[in-house]
Simulated assay, not measured.
Amino acid sequence: MLLLVHAALTFMLVGLILMVQWVHYPLFAQVGAATWPAYEREHQNRITFLVGPLMLAELLSAAWLTLHPPPALPSWSVWLGLVLTLLIWVSTALVQSPLHGRLSAAFDARLHRQLVVGNWFRTLVWLLRGGLCLWWLTLLL
């Protein structure tokens, strides 16, 4: 049951990161300088409320799966899942969050570009995690 919950969390986050990467972040450039600081502040509040609990639940369930892997899953794969999850957290803490912090004062096209380009790493890692969860589910079927 935990694997199903974990996979559902990962799939939700895959969908969310794809929407952010393809739609939301690129549209930041269209907001306008006058309204940017309020927009960025509201973005940070809303996205944290949505993403924070999902990421935390994904991390906790990945850790639990690593400590108590279902017998059908290769142990290396659950460790890989945890490592990928930790890479997402590190990228969020060291790249995306600081860039959002720097962008909160005023829109800067260079920082915006760094945010969009740098977020491809998280996007790809979450896609790998989604593929891993899909593989795990097929092993259990």
Rank of each mutant, 00 (worst) to 15 (best):
L56V: 13
L140Q: 12
R110T: 08
L54V: 05
W22P: 00
R129I: 06
I47S: 13
V20G: 04
L13M: 15
T123G: 07
W22G: 14
A57I: 01
W76H: 14
S104W: 07
F28L: 02
L137W: 06
A62Q: 04
Y39G: 10
D108N: 15
Y39V: 10
G32A: 06
V116A: 09
L87E: 01
A29T: 14
R110K: 10
L141E: 10
Q30Y: 12
N119V: 00
V95W: 15
W76E: 12
E58W: 10
P98A: 13
A38V: 03
L16Q: 07
L56P: 07
G118S: 00
I17T: 00
A72H: 07
E58Q: 15
L65G: 01
S104D: 11
Q30D: 15
A93Y: 13
L134N: 05
A7K: 03
T35I: 11
L50G: 04
D108G: 12
M55G: 09
V125E: 10
L3T: 00
L99H: 09
L2I: 12
N119A: 01
G52I: 08
E58T: 11
W126P: 00
V14Y: 02
G52T: 08
P53K: 13
N45C: 14
L127I: 09
P98T: 13
A109E: 14
L139S: 14
L99C: 11
L111A: 03
L4P: 00
V125Y: 09
D108Y: 12
S77D: 02
L50E: 03
A33S: 06
T35A: 15
Q21R: 13
P26F: 05
G131S: 10
L4E: 02
A62M: 04
W120F: 09
L73Q: 02
A72W: 03
V125M: 12
S75L: 12
T92D: 08
W120D: 04
H68P: 02
Y39Q: 11
T10K: 04
L124G: 12
V125R: 07
E58N: 12
I47P: 09
V90M: 10
V20Y: 02
V23Y: 12
C133P: 02
P26E: 05
V78S: 03
M19C: 08
S77Y: 00
